[in-house]
């Protein structure tokens, strides 16, 4: 077993032990320079800024903690995890937050090199300056749609945008029935990578927060004891921590709390169905 793998395994084990050990491990990861730099490199390449990098890095740690606690962690190494999860979280951020999406699109729209590249490819292939300008603007609109629909996989965004514009212009040429583009062989349509995997509820955070608020402290506590790391504590231990007589009482309380939770959800008439989001 490699040193790196050993240290990864140690991190996973301490997170699974919970309590202070988990907290100090997560703090260690939070300050981990290499993982941070890995995230930063991917986010910057993907059009994000420092603020985005920070948000994405924190989301990666939350996701790591969750995947380990839920026995869903399956990456070869933590570095792989941070690399893959950064892309996932960045794409989710762009998919869900219009202001961030528009910030990235704005930066691309103001990029003179990118404009020059698109102009070059259009004008080299039977287009004029006006076509190039239209292609660039249509490319930005299409990219916005692609980001919203999750068709972007978190790679270099300039390359992705260039490919989008290229495909737009190629289709335009097909419509005009002119000669195909000169270097078409070099520019195949964007191949989508493996679907991005993220483990999270399909309930919105807002809804979960509302349910949490109405659940009550006692139910929050017993659910936390039971499900934070499933079966870490026996029902006897849960009973002791809850100040209940015995395991049976703890089990009954737990059943009541699950029922209450469900009722709170039904009140919101939410068609709850848990799936592994892809």
């Amino acid at each position: 077993m490699s040193k790196e793998h050993q240290s990864d395994q140690m991190i996973i084990n301490t997170i699974l032990r919970g309590g202070k050990e988990r907290e100090s491990t997560l703090k260690y990861l939070f300050h981990h320079r290499h993982f941070r730099e890995t995230t930063a490199e991917i986010v910057f390449k993907a059009g994000g800024d420092h603020e985005h990098q920070e948000t994405v890095f924190e989301a990666c740690i939350i996701q790591l903690d969750k995947q380990i606690r839920r026995s869903l962690y399956s990456e070869k190494s933590l570095l792989d995890f941070f690399q893959n999860q950064t892309r996932v979280q960045w794409c989710l951020l762009l998919q869900r937050n219009q202001p961030d999406r528009h910030k990235v699109l704005g930066k691309l729209g103001d990029d003179p090199d990118l404009k020059r590249q698109i102009r070059a490819v259009v004008m080299k292939n039977s287009g004029n300056l006006e076509d190039a300008e239209d292609c660039f603007q249509n490319g930005l609109e299409l990219l916005d749609k692609q980001l919203t629909e999750g068709k972007y996989r978190g790679g270099a965004i300039k390359g992705f945008f260039y490919q989008t514009c290229y495909n737009l212009w190629r289709n335009e040429l097909k419509k005009r029935r002119t000669v195909p583009m000169a270097d078409e062989a070099l520019h195949q349509p964007v191949e989508l990578e493996d679907p991005l995997t993220v483990y999270e509820s399909n309930l919105s955070r807002q809804l979960l927060d509302e349910i949490l608020q109405r659940l009550g402290a006692s139910c929050q506590k017993i659910l936390n004891l039971k499900y934070f790391i499933m079966d870490q504590l026996s029902m006897d231990e849960i009973a002791v921590q809850m100040g209940l007589k015995n395991a049976q009482n703890a089990s009954n309380t737990l059943t009541k709390c699950r029922k209450k939770l469900w009722e709170l959800l039904v009140e919101h008439e939410h068609p709850y169905l848990w799936t592994r989001n892809t």
């Binding site: 509820s201 309930l203 955070r205 039971k226 499900y227 939770l261 469900w262 848990w274």
Partner: peptide, 16 residues
């Protein structure tokens, strides 16, 4: 299953 899953989601949100 849905009740257990919801309980886990709520706990995960608390953790988040």
């Amino acid at each position: 299953f849905d009740q257990c899953r919801l309980a886990m989601d709520v706990v995960d949100r608390q953790v988040e």
